[in-house]
């Protein structure tokens, strides 16, 4: 699993490189475009994910102790929190579409036209990075659902609980990716509004 996570780091790494380049080359446009992201909603989501990591860790702990019921409950909680995150994200996405900030198909930059190109690229990267992250969340929720089923069946014991642990690792990884994405995308300048 660790080897797989290294692969994932490299996968996101390419995007972070593109981001670094963009921010260096179009600094002002990136700042302007970042202002359109809702840092409060992003912050709420950060909180949701952090709590979900806590519940995940509790689930892994419970599985190691052999507490089947606690494992299942914590896993269900994790899943709900994951779904809340995705719900907020979907709300944000639809908002961007309404505001004409969706690159390629529905993009209308009404502010300083000099920033239009850089802003579109920034929002493009925003959608690719958070979209990819969201995809990982969906996979994560699927994994947790599978683990819940197995835990209910009584598959896990204090001796054998590796699937819970590696699902936990994956969940934490996806969480950490968000911890990087949130400040890089949302918190570029101190919010004025």
């Amino acid at each position: 699993m660790w080897a797989f996570l290294v692969t994932e780091v490299m996968f996101f790494g390419g995007l972070f490189l593109a981001y670094t380049f963009l921010r260096w080359k179009h600094h002002d446009a990136v700042v302007a475009a970042s202002g359109h992201l809702d840092w409060i909603l992003g912050g709420v989501n950060t909180g949701v994910l952090l709590v979900s990591s806590l519940t995940m860790a509790m689930a892994v702990h419970a599985a190691q102790e052999g507490k089947r019921k606690a494992t299942v409950n914590f896993l269900i909680l994790t899943m709900i929190l994951g779904a809340v995150f995705l719900g907020v994200k979907a709300f944000e996405y639809s908002h961007k579409w309404h505001d004409g900030l969706f690159p390629g198909f529905n993009f209308h930059w009404i502010e300083n036209p000099a920033y239009a190109g850089g802003a579109e690229m920034f929002l493009f990267l925003y959608f690719v990075m958070t979209g990819l992250h969201g995809l990982h969340m969906v996979v994560g929720i699927g994994l947790v659902a599978w683990i819940i089923k197995r835990a209910n069946r009584g598959d896990f014991t204090p001796e054998y609980n590796i699937p819970v642990e590696i699902t936990g690792l994956y969940w934490h990884f996806v969480d950490i990716v968000w911890i990087f994405l949130y400040p890089l995308l949302y918190l570029i300048q101190p919010p004025h509004h």
């Binding site: 080897a3 290294v6 692969t7 994932e8 490299m10 996968f11 996101f12 790494g13 390419g14 995007l15």
Partner: peptide, 10 residues
């Protein structure tokens, strides 16, 4: 493991 994900994202 280290290289292929980068071409994938590219």
């Amino acid at each position: 493991l280290l290289g292929t994900p980068v071409i994938a994202i590219t």
